[in-house]
Simulated scan of single mutants.
Amino acid sequence: MATDTQDQSEIFNGTANVGLKDTRSVDGTDTRTIPAFVFGEELADLAEHDPRIVVLTADLGRSNRALDFAARHPTRFVNVGIAEKNMITIAAGMASCGYVPFAATFGSFAALLCAEQIRTDCAYPDLPVRVVGHHSGMSMGFYGTSHHSLEDLGMMRTIADLTVVCATDANHLRALLRLSLNHPGAMYLRLGRGRDPEVYAAVPELVLGRAETVRDGSDLTIIATGSEVHPAVQAAEILSTQGISARVVDMWTISPLDRAAVLDAAESTGAVLTVEEGNVTGGLGTAVAEILLEAGARVSFRRHGVPDEHVPVGPPAALYAHYRLDAPGIAEVAHELLTSTKGQQA
């Protein structure tokens, strides 16, 4: 079959009229705010002043917009074809020669398929490879378990000497790419569903290991990451109409995790809810729980995400609603946490 007949990029980008998507997944989102669209553009801008930057992809240049980079820097772009493991090893070789390679593919392929190469070829020799896992979580809803990336945070944060970060929106992704340029070791950058509404009105100044408080509150803290930050903010707004003041912390830095922000949340608000678009086993919620337990913090706590199961096939928006990972669902879970806390105190 000819290559052009296999091109699924318009479907992956959510712009094709193929009847395979829930309208809530795309309505009202300017493509300029979609992380997958600014990835190549931002790197192309940075590469104008940094000759070390190279970009690799595994036949997904349109889906991750690496072609925007290739159009301006064709000699620094490599499409390895459908050979993800080889791509990571090639990137490691380029890093050993002084380049800063960004190797991009679906999160399910980057983290799950290439875990050995990320650990052994990149993290162990401490090479500055940036593995970019895009369309993570349940964003590839109709493509099923093979394309869902729910375990990547749990897996990646257990690899020694690997920095793990999550992009919240387009401006946040720009900041992460800029931050990554002079980071000395390997890094896993998790991009969300590609329809992430704006949380940051401008490109933020980020410090690795320091979370961002995007909304203050006193009754509980919602610690979210990646695509779940925006619905967490919306959930906090819903809770405010119920007389509940919720702080929202963007825990974009998964490894290293912001220990101080976690403990401050426990002490200041007394209740902590973690929210992530992924399996709750081993991910953000587990990382936060470890900190709270080791510190002996007295706090009401709940992990919220996808339970330890393979999710059904369906439109991403419907899956978020099913798992209560949309704004109304997060608000419900937060209310349940606070209600159970009051019951225990009574």
Rank of each mutant, 00 (worst) to 15 (best):
H49G: 11
N13V: 08
D22M: 04
L263S: 09
L113A: 15
M187P: 00
L257G: 07
P231H: 05
V18D: 15
E290I: 06
V233Q: 12
D219P: 06
H304M: 04
L173Q: 10
A66W: 01
G93N: 04
I34V: 14
T33P: 03
G282D: 11
R157N: 06
G192M: 02
L338I: 01
R174F: 00
M251G: 06
R298M: 14
M155L: 14
D121R: 07
K342M: 13
S96I: 00
R259M: 09
S180D: 05
I11F: 15
T29F: 13
D22S: 12
L206N: 08
S340P: 03
V333W: 06
L325W: 00
L338M: 06
P256E: 07
T253G: 10
Q345Y: 08
M251P: 00
I330V: 11
V299W: 03
L337S: 09
T89S: 12
N182W: 06
G192L: 02
D30Q: 03
A111W: 00
A160K: 12
I254G: 07
E267S: 15
G141T: 01
P316A: 14
V80E: 10
R303G: 06
A327W: 00
Y99F: 15
P197K: 01
S218K: 12
L263E: 08
D161T: 09
E336N: 12
A16Q: 13
E151F: 00
V164S: 03
A44K: 02
G137D: 06
S300E: 13
A265E: 04
N86T: 11
V80F: 05
C122Y: 01
P128L: 02
R65W: 06
Q8C: 13
H148N: 12
R247V: 02
T15D: 11
E336T: 09
L67F: 14
V165C: 09
